[in-house]
Amino acid sequence: MPTLILVRHGRSTANTSGVLAGRTPGVSLDERGAAQAAALPGRLSALTLAAAVSSPLQRCRETLQPLLDARPDLPLHTEDRISECDYGDWSGRKLAELSDEPLMKVVQQHPSAAVFPGGESMRAMQVRAVEAVREWNDRIGAEHGDDATYLMCSHGDIIKAIVADALGMHLDLFQRVQADPCSVTAIRYTALRPYLLRLGDTGDFASLAPRERPAGADAATAPETDAAVGGGAGAP
């Protein structure tokens, strides 16, 4: 079966403003995100890609545009099932204020039980995304052979949910996975099991350096112990 390259969109204006964008229209890449997208063709230059599949949201389309410009023959498909999680009433709100919502503890510690008010459940999000991957695996394999490689450009929580499925992890563990903006994750699917080949690869090891903790913050309760809902902005 094919190899899937998962690309998270580049850093967006919502990422840098600390807003949970969700499916809010008009969220574009910021200056750094545009630079990340511009570097993507070079990072993937060694790969022959059978197709590109994109979330319908603007920030994903903008991330793929330099790759499409560099490869004008690369087929592009839009897939609604890999769109961002529908955060419902949480969409467009500041993450700082959402951290005080009782539901946030569920999102962090028991995401399989989390249902966003006016939106979807995280469990439904994973189901639709994994179904899309499985169907695209079959389609790409049938059209291009089992050794084919294709790309999906999606969102942080979607990619984390797909990775959790590939590793046989319960969704309640998916917050242990990190996917920074414009990171590349690679999964090779076989008849018996998937293999995780790359996870959240940005080529930037500076992001692994310890970050400054606010004065007086306790290590056990510091904000970095929580996962970044929506995927976060990556390194400063």
Rank of each mutant, 00 (worst) to 15 (best):
residue 214 P to K: 07
residue 96 A to W: 03
residue 187 I to K: 09
residue 235 A to C: 11
residue 193 R to G: 05
residue 218 D to C: 07
residue 168 G to W: 04
residue 166 A to R: 07
residue 48 T to F: 02
residue 234 G to R: 00
residue 208 L to E: 10
residue 156 G to C: 04
residue 89 D to L: 13
residue 171 L to Q: 09
residue 83 S to F: 03
residue 226 D to R: 14
residue 205 F to H: 14
residue 101 E to M: 01
residue 125 M to P: 01
residue 159 I to M: 04
residue 124 A to Y: 02
residue 116 F to M: 09
residue 85 C to V: 11
residue 52 A to S: 11
residue 235 A to N: 10
residue 40 L to P: 06
residue 63 T to V: 11
residue 216 G to L: 08
residue 106 V to Q: 08
residue 132 A to D: 00
residue 167 L to M: 15
residue 140 I to T: 09
residue 229 V to S: 02
residue 207 S to Q: 14
residue 78 T to L: 15
residue 68 L to A: 09
residue 90 W to A: 00
residue 90 W to K: 00
residue 139 R to K: 13
residue 139 R to M: 07
residue 43 R to W: 08
residue 188 R to S: 12
residue 50 A to S: 15
residue 145 G to Y: 12
residue 84 E to K: 06
residue 95 L to H: 01
residue 38 A to F: 05
residue 159 I to V: 13
residue 172 D to K: 06
residue 150 Y to Q: 07
residue 236 P to K: 13
residue 197 L to H: 04
residue 169 M to R: 07
residue 93 R to Y: 08
residue 25 P to C: 07
residue 50 A to E: 03
residue 71 R to L: 15
residue 160 K to D: 01
residue 194 P to T: 05
residue 31 E to W: 01
residue 109 Q to T: 13
residue 141 G to Q: 08
residue 2 P to W: 01
residue 33 G to P: 00
residue 11 R to P: 00
residue 221 T to D: 14
residue 84 E to H: 06
residue 1 M to F: 08
residue 96 A to F: 04
residue 7 V to T: 14
residue 186 A to E: 15
residue 131 E to I: 00
residue 124 A to C: 05
residue 214 P to Y: 02
residue 119 G to N: 04
residue 222 A to K: 08
residue 23 R to L: 10
residue 98 L to W: 10
residue 183 S to M: 08
residue 147 D to S: 15
residue 150 Y to K: 06
residue 27 V to M: 05
residue 72 P to L: 01
residue 150 Y to H: 10
residue 130 V to K: 05
residue 199 L to T: 00
residue 64 L to A: 12
residue 72 P to D: 07
residue 114 A to W: 04
residue 38 A to L: 13
residue 213 R to D: 13
residue 130 V to Y: 06
residue 112 S to M: 04
residue 236 P to C: 11
residue 124 A to N: 11
residue 187 I to N: 05
residue 42 G to Q: 14
residue 214 P to T: 03
residue 175 Q to H: 06
residue 151 L to T: 09
residue 186 A to C: 12
residue 186 A to R: 15
residue 28 S to E: 14
residue 8 R to H: 10
residue 158 I to F: 00
residue 53 V to W: 03
residue 162 I to F: 03
residue 152 M to Y: 02
residue 147 D to M: 05
residue 32 R to A: 08
residue 190 T to F: 11
